[in-house]
């Protein structure tokens, strides 16, 4: 933990960029999996590269998080709440790395080319195997629901800090204004 009161600039930019990307992926995902209209192809063609972009950004973000310590949670928070906050953050990191890997892995197992754009494909990362394909396809759905539920809790907790507790948590990620207290 550090004494800074805000997340680093890179952390804040990645947080909000990826929030938009991941929510887009979740909405695109559940819509395309229940449509047989022309949007199915368009959305799936977007879903694959956007998901891989999330994987790459998540790796940058994890490295940044390990190198640049985040601001500590306020002392006013009981230990159990702090543990819940940390646990949910670990889960969010795990899922934003696992979801794209499962997407990529299931297409590999299902013997689909993993098309990014035009002629650019990713290589398969798993052997062709029908049971593996079916398992990963279902896992992709269930973990997406878990990811969405975790995001909703995360959002509710953030709003609680912003509107009710009014502590340092909300500005530590939301504020983009430069203040003297950013300086070491």
């Amino acid at each position: 933990m550090s004494t800074s009161i805000r997340f680093s600039g890179l952390a804040r930019i990645l947080h909000w960029l990826m929030a938009v990307m991941i929510l887009t992926m979740l909405f695109v995902g559940v819509f395309m999996a229940t449509t047989t209209g022309p949007a199915y192809y368009t959305l799936l063609s977007l879903h694959r590269p956007l998901g891989i972009a999330i994987l790459l950004l998540a790796l940058v973000r994890l490295t940044n998080r390990l190198l640049v310590p985040p601001p500590s949670l306020p002392d006013t928070m009981p230990p159990l709440q702090k543990a819940a906050a940390l646990g949910s953050h670990v889960l969010l990191y795990a899922l934003m790395i696992a979801m794209p890997l499962i997407g990529w892995g299931m297409l590999s197992a299902g013997n689909y080319p993993v098309i990014m754009w035009g002629g650019f494909h990713l290589p398969p990362i798993l052997p062709h195997n029908p049971v593996l394909f079916a398992t990963l396809r279902h896992l992709h759905t269930w973990l997406a629901i878990l990811l969405f539920a975790t995001i909703l809790l995360h959002l509710a907790a953030a709003l609680l800090h912003a509107l009710i507790l009014r502590d340092s948590v909300w500005p530590s990620m939301v504020s983009f204004r430069r203040t003297e207290r950013d300086l070491p």
Partner: peptide, 17 residues
């Protein structure tokens, strides 16, 4: 074709399991 693509993916998921 888009409807087929969606349906074939679901058929593959069902039969593979």
């Amino acid at each position: 074709p888009a409807a087929r693509s969606a349906a074939y993916a679901r058929s593959l998921t069902l039969r593979s399991g």
